[in-house]
Amino acid sequence: MPRLSAKSATLLVLAALVVVSPLFFPSGYYYRVGALIFVNGLAVTGIVILTGYAGQISLGHAGFAGIGGYACALAPVHLGLPPALAAVLGVLISGALAYLVGRPILRLKGYYLAVATLGFGILVSMVLNNERQLTGGPDGIIVPDLGLRGLLKDWGLNISNGEFWYFFCGIALLIGAWIALNLRQSPTGRALRALHGSEIAAQTVGIDVARLKLQAFVISAVYASVAGSLLALQNKFITPDVAGFMHSIEMVTMAVLGGAGSVLGAILGAGVLTLLPQVLTVFAEFEQLVLGLVMMLMMIFLREGLLPSLLRKLRGRDE
């Protein structure tokens, strides 16, 4: 029997989840929850590339999500760009900032990136909170409609707003996962995982470690930016919370919970931590307590994350 590659298997599972899940939705509200899971899954897929593949960590990725989100709010109004192009502008700004911030830092040890990104995230959220004339401050700002659903209606495809964003974000997640999985088995991805394993050895086989880390950082910033744009566009509203410290922490926690080295695992982690507050209303009260605990417990007892550990166990039983 020809064996399914890990990449195809992952994509099939994801596609099946996107298509089949709505059959079990108790109400239309769950399209919204689903879309939220996909958006978070997309952001966390970027963390997989940075943390899972390359072994680096960012504590300020929400900053890039904020840039992506506010680009969609501001560029249409101030620059007259259509919202879709505004998202592209967000990607360009996020990528450029990631490059500028990452370049001096990624030559050094791991915790420098953690601290600098922490500072970066705080800075972005501070700008968004304080530049009231531009961003509306802590109260947030309205985001123009993407306009695609109207276009679909003109073409005779009439779906609800919830359904539209559910499938739109689902497709975005599938594309994001496909790209991350492509990268994993590619020469660049192999070099990233190699430098994660041993920087010294990676250097001696000719890998320009600093340059590759920078590439991973920029790519993952682009993921966060797109996720931020999708979030802003579907909510038609955005507040500085999207760029906040706790949002950065959420992303990291989602990744390490499911498994930062595995695209499917990280998306699973995003699913669990997105669903939790929906199911348990008291969760919001204890969010920090839970996130902090999950981070510590996973790193001490289950460093690979839930899904890879589970798969390893199952495989162990087969043999």
Binding site: T51, G55, Q56, I57, L59, K109, G110, Y111, A114, M246, I249, V252, T253, V256, F286, E287, Q288, L289, V290, L291, G292, L293, V294, M295, M296, M298, M299, I300, R303
Partner: peptide
């Protein structure tokens, strides 16, 4: 543990202490 794991542990501790 790798540096990244230690960073996640101590930042996790930070968030946990805040929550507590």
């Amino acid at each position: 543990a790798p540096v990244v794991s230690l960073i996640i542990i101590t930042i996790g501790a930070s968030v946990f202490i805040q929550g507590a």
